[in-house]
Design a protein around this nucleic acid. Structure first.
Lengths: 254, 254
DNA sequence: CTTGACCCTTACGTAACGTAATATTTTATC
DNA sequence: GATAAAATATTACGTTACGTAAGGGTCAAG
């Protein structure tokens, strides 16, 4: 069974131009060409195309995909790991960009006049109101009210406080990542100073006794979600942070 | 004081070609041109360039930057917020890509022969060993040994278990995000089924009594780091998850 | 046999410059 | 003042992965 460009394009969800292009760069050649010049593809090509599209989704360049296709599983494994690392670096970079944007927004807001601010937050709260009305509309049960209440109670909707905490936390994590990079010990004075800032920040939300802070450190180290979160900053982050917190708790907290 | 292209390039850390380009597209015109055709820049242009480079770092396109520069702070605020959202979507996308890669790696590893596996993990453990030797070399104190011990104890270095947990957790979070999108209640059976998976997964790491699980839900909702982590999946994620967990704990756990 | 759907190749446009190639002008040195 | 080195200019091609025509054959149905 031979497929023409249009048919294969429809099946695979890509454009005819793309198939032309893949042919041109030698990524996916048709099974054969008729003497009318038409391209004809068969099952084998479809399977290759599937692989191509899979790797493309993962963000590989066509050039890399070309190499991947001619490699064995073992080499692909290495390529995937390498690509994974790049993506993780992207995460770090983007997180840092977001953090910078937040700071800039705060700064600009400081420069706004009051009427501008009201206008801006007017948009914000309008959107929020919309969401709440949506909640009430679709699940206007008492239970849903509890959710709204919970939201209010936690006060994380206080934008300014939230932004401040997020920025400070982010800075602390980055400082710690720097410290790891420099090869500092988690018990060194420099690191412990950073941890002190960490403790104080957290202390605004919990009543952090020595035991609770140690417990929090354990949680950091053991909890998969935290591991993933802190990986963004540095692969050794949780262990380092956990140990530094434990040391801080035992030495500094009564 | 007038700067030639080379001087301005050196000061600002960009290339001469870039300045030519910015002139060509009208993003940054020189203050004036001599009758020899040379471009001359002054302080005002330097300030504009600073702004351009700042926005470029944040990932804006030159086209967008051109608009940004002719707008007031208020409109910039809106643009920054919009850009922030794009970046957050990038975070979600990249996270999902990493998750897919992890699954693929697991799959490929299943296909490897034993000797291949040993070879691959040989690399891994060699790198890990290197790191540990580095630790001992630079901070070979008993305290550092504790860190290594702590690392072993948590057993998160068991790659297969870790990958599995991470994938499952990720799937659960995504399923929850879908549920929010569909407008489901956190108390609905569908959501509670997901939460059950969540509970079981967490239960492999902690001894989750009713109280502890409720405590964990509080932690999710109140802790800024968690907020940031869960934002990746959906802006309403923590509140939704927190309420669903609380409901699950009260109803299902003894 | 016509008509419309499909096929082909050629080629320009995209973003933001890097990298020549070639020509002119300024600056430094002798 | 002559010469060389450094800096400047313009022009233009290369990069990624196609989208979007333009202009012109081919195929299947009625």
């Amino acid at each position: 069974m031979a497929y023409t460009v249009k048919k294969l394009a429809k099946i695979s969800g890509i454009s005819v131009r793309t198939l032309h292009w893949y042919d041109e760069i030698g990524l996916l050649k048709p099974a054969y060409s008729g003497n009318n010049g038409y391209r004809y593809y068969e099952e084998k090509q479809m399977l290759i195309l599937q692989q191509i599209l899979f790797f493309k989704e993962l963000g590989f360049t066509l050039n890399d995909i070309q190499k991947l296709l001619s490699q064995n599983d073992f080499d692909n494994l290495k390529a995937l790991s390498a690509h994974r690392k790049v993506l993780e670096e992207d995460l770090v970079r983007i997180n840092s960009l977001i953090s910078t944007i937040d700071k800039t927004i705060l700064h600009l807001e400081g420069k706004q006049t009051m009427s501008d601010k009201e206008l801006y937050y007017g948009f914000e709260s309008a959107r929020q109101k919309e969401y709440e009305q949506y909640l009430v509309k679709y699940h206007g049960t008492p239970a849903e009210e509890r959710l709204l209440e919970c939201k209010k109670r936690t006060a994380i909707w206080d934008k300014e406080v939230w932004d401040e905490v997020k920025n400070k936390g982010d800075t602390i994590h980055k400082d710690l990542a720097d410290a790891i990079q420099k090869g500092l010990s988690p018990h060194s004075d420099d690191v412990q100073t950073i941890i002190h800032r960490h403790y104080q920040l957290q202390n605004r939300f919990f009543n952090l006794t020595r035991e609770v802070y140690i417990g929090l450190s354990e949680l950091y180290v053991q909890h998969p979600d935290f591991k993933k979160f802190f990986d963004v900053y540095h692969p050794k982050m949780i262990e380092f942070l956990g140990e530094a917190m434990r040391y801080y708790a035992n030495k500094t907290l009564s």
